[in-house]
Design a protein around this nucleic acid. Structure first.
Lengths: 128, 128
DNA sequence: TGTCGAATTGCAGAAGTCTTCAATTCCGGG
DNA sequence: CCCGGAATTGAAGACTTCTGCAATTCGACA
């Protein structure tokens, strides 16, 4: 597997790494929409939205076209929906897992350091 | 849907937005591995790898533990593999789609602007 | 042709991420 | 107890991304 391939994959994921861009993609899951609609639902400045849309276009996850005088955006492939779904599942797994262990910990050891950052409770920090 | 949720999702994807981190996750798909092995396969400085592993740990997509004197890393949930697979599919779709249209364009209009950047050939740039 | 709303672009300062270096922690074995 | 390799941490400098403002382009329609 070539090295630049990892670069390309990383770029693809980095493209989704922004709240506004995620939001746009979720809205586009239900079909093409004009910029105007996105703007109405997202609460961000027009220029900012445009910048984020440009990022999504550059990577090719969305496409744009003009219809009835408005610029429309659409997912370039339905596979994008799968990606979002997978992301949701992982988020769910990670969170319940964290909260689960957190709750368990609390139940078994009543007088533990209370100000300890939650993140280090999981198995995630073995080496130190 | 709460606003910080989009923040969390974005963070999750941003976590994957780095070649070394992608590489690590792909290696971990086949099971837990010691840092030493990752280091041998990835060609990056130890401290850099550690930094990237820390990022993955922070988000909770990997966990670490010590075994036989070595620090091991593992995917925190097999769902991560789905995410990588979905990413691969999209990358494939986007690329063939781009190259496909590119080839089609070439075939149908022999004397077209040759120095035009490839990215703008797709439907991706309708408004201008 | 002139005007209006829609959407994009250019840009600058603020904020965040990457990489590398040196220093540190951790643990197993002598 | 101290050494050695394994892995992590801290911090600084280079680099990239984000945000908001002002200016511009674009196309529809009178």
């Amino acid at each position: 597997m070539s090295v630049p391939l990892y670069q390309a994959k990383a770029e693809m994921f980095r493209t989704l790494g922004h709240p506004v861009r995620i939001r746009v993609l979720e809205l586009l899951q239900s079909g093409p929409r004009p910029v105007r609609d996105l703007l109405a639902e997202i609460d961000v400045e027009p220029s900012n939205l445009s910048q984020q849309l440009a990022v999504l276009r550059r990577t090719g996850v969305v496409v744009s076209f003009r219809d009835a005088g408005l610029v429309m955006y659409a997912l370039s492939t339905p596979d994008v929906a799968d990606l979002l779904a997978a992301g949701r599942r992982i988020l769910g797994a990670v969170l319940t897992d964290r909260d689960g262990l957190l709750a368990e910990l609390r139940a078994h050891s009543p007088s533990e350091q209370p100000a300890r950052p939650a993140a280090s409770i999981e198995g995630s920090t073995a080496a130190r």
